[in-house]
Amino acid sequence: MLSNGLQVYLILAALLLAAGVYGLVQKRSFIGMLISIELILNGAGLNCMAFNRFCSPDPAIGQVLTLFIMGIAAAEAAIGVGFILAVYKRFRTIDPTRIFILKQ
């Protein structure tokens, strides 16, 4: 029974984190970086829920914690897209490699 083991969920969360880190370093667009951050946050939420199910004496706490993670992820996505729009208005591009005003 694979679905009854804590390890499966933890390894899945680790894979989500690894994919997110890979995307965060490799992507060359702001949206791509946001996508990677969402992957990492999802891995964190899955971890929380797995430990909540298998290790916690009180099953409500982990769910509340995961809800808070979701709220913070929503705030982060709103701010991120806001930044993207602001950068697009200012520079007419959102290619991170072409925005180097601090270097000049």
């Binding site: 979701m70 929503a74 897209v81």
Partner: peptide, 19 residues
């Protein structure tokens, strides 16, 4: 609701408006 609904739509919106 939050992830597959709201955040995905926000990301699609950002993709379409910025590129």
């Amino acid at each position: 609701l939050i992830y597959a609904g709201a955040i995905t739509i926000v990301l699609v919106f950002g993709t379409m408006i910025g590129y």
